[in-house]
Structures are given as structure tokens and as C-alpha cells.
Design a binder for these strands. Sequence first.
RNA 1: GCUGGCGUAGCUCAAUUGGCAGAGCGGCUGAUUUGUAAUCAGCAGGGUGCGGGUUCGAGUCCCAUCGCCAGCUCCA
Length: 645
Amino acid sequence: MSDAIKVAGPDGSPQEFPRGVKVAEVVRALYPDRAEVTVAALVDGKEADLQVALQADVSAFRPITVDTPEGLEVLRHSTSHLMANAVKSLFPQAKVTIGPAIDTGFYYDFDVPGTFSPEDLARIEARMAEVGQADLPFIRMEWPKAQAIAFFREQGEHYKVEIIEGIEDPIVSIYRVGDFVDLCTGPHVPSTSRIRAFKLLSTAGAYWRGDERNPMLQRIYGTSFPDRASLEAHLRRLEEARERDHRKLGRELDLFSVQEDAGGGLIFWHPKGTRVRMVIEELLRRELLRAGYQFVTTPHLVRRDLLGISGHLDFYSEYMYAPMDVEGQQYIVKPMNCPGHILIYRSALRSYRELPIRLAELGTVYRFERSGVLHGLLRVRGFTQDDAHIFCRPEQLLGEITQILQMMFAVLRLFGFDRYEVYLSTRPEKFVGVRESWDQAEAALADALKALGCTYEVDAGGGAFYGPKVDLKIMDVLDRAWQCGTVQVDFNFPERFDLAYISESGARARPIMVHRAILGSLERFMGVLIEHYRGAFPTWLAPVQAVVLNVTQAQEPYGEQVYQRLLREGVRVERDFRNETLGHKIRDAQLKKVPYMLVIGKREAEAGGVSPRTRAGQDLKCMPLEQFLDRLREECRPCTEGLLG
RNA sequence: GCUGGCGUAGCUCAAUUGGCAGAGCGGCUGAUUUGUAAUCAGCAGGGUGCGGGUUCGAGUCCCAUCGCCAGCUCCA
């Protein structure tokens, strides 16, 4: 046995190292410029700590650096151990459970008698900093299960014992940092000095193993970054998100409210919010009509039996409100629009010549959500879907899906969402319909996406039992993803409702049904929009597009003329003729994020013009009213012109 | 729903160990006639979420209840 081993270098060529060489030394030799940011390595596909001694040839070797998501995860996971170390030393009675890295940081769940106060968090953070300074190494050990169980049982760490008992491997890995010993797969950073920029953010209750029947643990959330600057950037982003909170902006801009007297999760759209909503609704109506959709209106209350035919009672009842008794019949408030649309389809014998039939409705539905999950406009109990159901022949499916996706992308671009994540969910293990139909539908979805040059991820087996689907998540300016549009092929309802059309040959045939929504819920979409624009809607969407401001009361009559003229032109205009200084009125309009402030003083009145000031603070100087109107019309073109040419 | 935190004027927030419920903004009235992010003065506005209790005395302490906020999905 030779004393040398071969490790694949950056170009794949084998490099010689002494047997037992540490991963860290290999990194230093092969990737000298990245050694500083390396926290672990991928050795033949397995993550390894830097202090692991290599005993055999390695055919694939790659450092894991903190500037990658996996490296960041290692750093954060190590930070959670550092935090657990600090908690155990300050609260010796605390029992540790799990402490993984998450997308934005890490958490660790503890079983402690009380709760952690903000002061406790500060103490823990201070202790973490001390331990970090001490530069304690993370030491990996491998113990037989029995030894690990005995050790943790002796420590009274029964959650750990429970975890280990569930592990199949006879050997478990253990990490020690200072006095703190934890069961962990690793890898970890080599020592605590690598943990340089972290912050504990919040505490929360969390059930052991996420099950509400289990004891409630105390969770501490924190985050960790390779350097101070990234941490601070992250904290600024959190602050930014708070500033953009649609609930705060909704109140400040008087867009909507939720009323305690009416109940949670039920939205009251105020005049300003309704104006924005109307712009969106009118745009959708116009575009859908142009695309060959027909609008329908269906009742909010239907017999409960209808939901029995659709099968909703079986798989959706937890979201439905209790039925009400109407002259001995059970009625329910509709949780979805599809059954109503199906009844309209079924109200006549359909010919293949009529298909596709595209029925659209801005349909308001009510779904039960547990009180704790309600959140502003983003999670509500009553909402309006931009819903539509398409009934088509199999050979029309690809065309229909393509049209839907085209419209979806066009609409989202219009609202300033240029980035999205697209998921294609395919046949699950349990499904209805025949395999060939599924294959055809999945192919149609995939082909349509490809034809549009859209990159997507496949969620294999992630489709609903009734059909495959494409989901769209939009990314807002803060890189947050929001579920919006969806296209779902449905083989189930046509069967259950026995839908049919008469084919070319005169035979009865089964149509394919497609459910689709572009924005999803108007409530949720507006919540996302408010945050996306920070309440400063572009002119075409703004609830108030312009406000007329007089310099002195002498200009009030002229200001009124301007106001009336703009109103007649369809401009969403307001006037502020209060007895205040111009500066004051500008400030107020600015805080309301109105795109244009029309200053009217002596000069403007004499010239018969207006001096617009933009929300950005630019003075456009005195211009004729017509010129201002042209400018407004130009800015509203994206919404007035039509999306698909 | 569960765990924790928080509920004071329309909004944002004060109120010492239990000791007279306050301010700013907003609103109203008046003065001022204002040129690109807050003119000045005065006035009104409150069973401190709701219901009990302890106390000479409760915004403050206790119990119950309603609502809001965060988390409860990330799994050694």
C-alpha cells in the first residue's frame, strides 16, 4: 500500500497527496485562491469537513465555499450549533432538539420551561460572540448508535435519543463544539472563528416534529453571513420588507381595511383600493373578451349536493363553511367557481363546432382558513379569482394552453414582473383518467412552455389526482416568490358531470376541461402589487393619477375648471384647495404617492396651463393642459392598448 | 386551532413602585394668501378592546374573553 493517494484536481487530472492528507490541505494546494472562503468540500459526491483525513483516491473533489448556497448552509448550520452551545451554557436545563439551516438563516428548537425574552436573546448572542472569539474547533466523531443513545440519555436529552432511535445506520456522527455535543450529519466550518456575522432575530413556538399534538418547543430564529456587510444588507432588506408591508401601506394609502366587526380575513376595499382593482378588472375583461372568452356570472350560494357531484365534499370539505338550511335543503357558500361553470356548459347540448368554450368569471369564493394563518390580503377567507374554465376537444388542448400562457406572461410583464418560476407538475401515483390522456396533456403543457421559450422545473408526480398542471410563481423586487397563475388540465370533472359534445361523426364525445387563473386571487395579487411598487403605483394603475394644487385661493376657480376637465377626460384626479401653503400640499400629495401634482398659480391661470410636478420631484414647468393629457395618455398606453396585439 | 407577544384619540406613540389619561400628526374654526416635502393660533376628540375581580384608588396587578402580530412548511 502506497503512502500516496490521488485526488482529482480542478481540471480532473489526478494530483498526488500523502495518504491521510486533510481536506483543508488539499483545498489549499488545488484551490489556493478559494481556500479563504471554503468551509467544507464535496469529496466523491459526499460532503466532508475540512479536517477529514483522506485515506483513498478521490475521483471528484470540489471545495464548498460560503459564496454558494450550500456553503452558506454549512455556515448557518454551524451558527445554529454555536447558538445551541450558548443556550446550553446559559440555560443548562434546556433540552435541545433540532437546529437546521433554512433559506434565510437558521433556527434551533429548545425545550425550556419558560420562553426566551428579547433580553435572553441578547445574552445568548453575546455568549455566542465570546465563544466565537475563543475559536473552538468543530470536532466530528462517529459513535455506534448504542453509545450515542446512552450518552444522550445520560444527558437527559430525550429528544436526541428519540431521533437516534429512528436512524437506521448503526453508526451516527456527532459534533462537539466546546462543551456542546450534538448529533449531526455535518459538515461544519472548522472552527467558531469562521462564524463572523450573525444575528438572532426572533423567537416562536414550534411543535416537536411540527405536530400540534406534540409538546410546544421554543424556537430561536437567526441568520448568519460570511461577513458583516452581507449581514447588514440582509437586515436592511428585512427592514425594507417591513416598510413595504401591504397592510401598513393599505392603511396609509387608504386602499382597504379588515374590520373587527365584520370578521377576520374579509376585505373591505375602500374607494382608492377599488379604483386600482377596477383598472385591473377592466383590463382583464377586455383582454379576455379579445381572446374569445365569454363572461358568466354564477351564484354565491348553491345546493350542497352540487359539491357532492364534483367530489369537493370528499377532498375539500375542510375549506368549506358549514352548510345552511334553506327550506329543508342544505346550501353552502361556494368555495370555487368550477361547478357553476360546468352547469352552464351542461345547460345545452354542445357541438364540436362550438368548442372551445371559454367561460370566465371574476368569481368571489369563500374558504375557511384557520384564524392563525390569515395575513392581510395574502391569506384571506373571501376572495375573487380571475377564474376561467375551458372546455375543448383533445386536439385543441395545445392551442388553448399556449394562448393561456401567452396571456399570463403578457399580463405579468405589464405589471412589472419580469422574473418568474414555472413548475410543471406531472402524474401522481394515484390519478383518474387514462394514461394516454395524461401523457398527451403533459406533453401539451410542456410543448406550450417550450414554444414560448420558457424554462421550467418539472415536479414529477406533483400533479393533482385529476390532471397535470403548470404553476407560475412571480418574483417581486425583493426576490420573494408568490404563487399566482395556474393552468390545470382536468380529466375528472368531465367524467363526474358526464360532460359531452357531439363530435364530427355524430357520436358523443368527452371534452377536456382546463381550469386557469392568471392573477389567481385579486386580493393576493393586489397585496403583492402594493409591496412590489411600495405603494407607488405606476400612473396607469394609480388610484389618484393627478392632484390639482392651487397656490392661493385666487386660483381656486381656475383650478376647479382644470379639475372638471380632467375628470371628464377620465383622469383619476383629485383637488386640494385647502388654505395651506403649496409646500404643505405637495408634501401631502407626495406622501400619498400621487404620480402628478398640478401646480396652479397666477402664471398658470393666466397662461391657461398647469405646472406638473412628478412624484420623483421633477418640475415639468408650465404647459398647456392638452400637453399634460397627452403625457398621461402615453403613460397609460400599456393598459389601454391591449396586450396581445 | 395551538404557543408567545401586543391591544391607550382616526393614525403613530407617551403615562415613575398602582396615585389627576397625555403628545405629535390628522380633523374643525380663525388669522394668514402662501410658487414645489409640514405658516401660526385656538377648539373638539377617550367607558385605555370587551367582561369580571383585587385595592381607598387599576391604563398599570389577577381571571376570563375578543382581536391583532409572529411562528407552528424547512427535520440529526
